[in-house]
Design a protein around this nucleic acid. Sequence first.
DNA 1: AACCTTCCCTGATGGC
DNA 2: TGCCATCAGGGAAGGT
Length: 308
Amino acid sequence: MPELPEVETIRRGLVEHVKGLTIRDVVWRECRIFQLPAERLGRELRAQSIREITRRGKFLIFELDRHYCIVHLGMTGQLTVRDPARADSKRFYRHPNTGLQRIRQHAPDPHTHLQICFENGKALLFRDIRKFGRVHLLEKGSEVLSIFFRKLGLEPFSEQYVLAAFLKQFAKRKVRTKSLLLDQSFVAGIGNIYADEALFWAGIHPSRRVTTLRRYEKERLFHVIHAVLRRGIRFGGTTLRDYINSEGESGSHQEELMVYGRAGKSCRSCGSRIEKIVISQRGTCFCPLCQPRSRPRRDLQVGLWAQS
DNA sequence: AACCTTCCCTGATGGC
DNA sequence: TGCCATCAGGGAAGGT
C-alpha cells in the first residue's frame, strides 16, 4: 500500500529516469482506473513532454506541456520504468520467506493497464492488480491543482506543516486518533502503516478520542508524523506485498516497523505482546504497554529518535 | 458538517 | 488436489 514515503521514493526514481522525455506512443487496457476515456488519455498524452514530477500526499503529479496527469496508486499500483537496453525479468520473483517481489523490470502482463512509451525507447508502465488506483488528466491552468486537491490536508514536507496549523486541524474533531491520522484532510499522505507507527512512537493508544489528547501529546504527534515519514523515505519505503519502486526494487522499511504487521509478536521496546484491533475498517496494531488506553504518557522521550 | 458504513477488486491463505 | 470463505485496505459515495 503505497503511502507518502513509497510514493516519494517512486517519484525520485521517475525524476531520474523519465523527466524531460517526450511521449511517443501510449498503449492502454480499458479499465476503471482511468477517469476519462482511455482512448482520449492516449491521444492527449502523445507528443507531450514530462516537464516535472511532483507529489501531493499520495498523489503523483506529472506536469506535461498542456496537462497535469495525476496518478494515485491505490493499494497495489506500481509505476516502473522499462528500458529496452536491459533484460526483462521473466517473472515476478517472490521471496519464499518474506514474500517480497524483487524484479528489475518487467514486460506488460494482464495487470499492466497503461504503457507510456518515450521517444528514446524507454517506457513507463502502470500495473495495478486490485484496480484501486486512479489516473486523472487536467488541462493546465492557474487554479486546477488547488481545486483538485482542495480537500487534502497539511503536506508534511512543506512550509505549511507547522505546529500552529497542525493544532488547528483538531477543531471540531471527535474521532479516534487512528481515524484522524488516516483522514487525508488532516495530514496528507499517512496510510495504515505509518499511522500505526506514528501512534506507537507518540505513545498514544489508537482508540483514544482526539478530544482526550493533551497538548503535549498533540505536539509529540506533530513531530513523530514527520519523523516516521522521513524514516520511511530514508529506507526506500515499506514493502509488504506489492510495493516496488520505479526500478522494480523493494524498500527495506518493513524491517524497521515497531507495530504494523507485528500482532502477536513482542514489542521491540518493552517486550509486551502486540495487539490487533479494527478501527475505521482498518487493522490496527499497537503495544498495550507503550500505548496505554487511558493514562497519557507524559514521560515519553522521543526527541532523540525524532532527529534521525 | 462530522462521522460512519459500504463498496470496489484480486491474490494469498487456511480449513475441509 | 480442489473448492470455498475470509482477509487485506484507500478513497468515493451515500446515509445519519
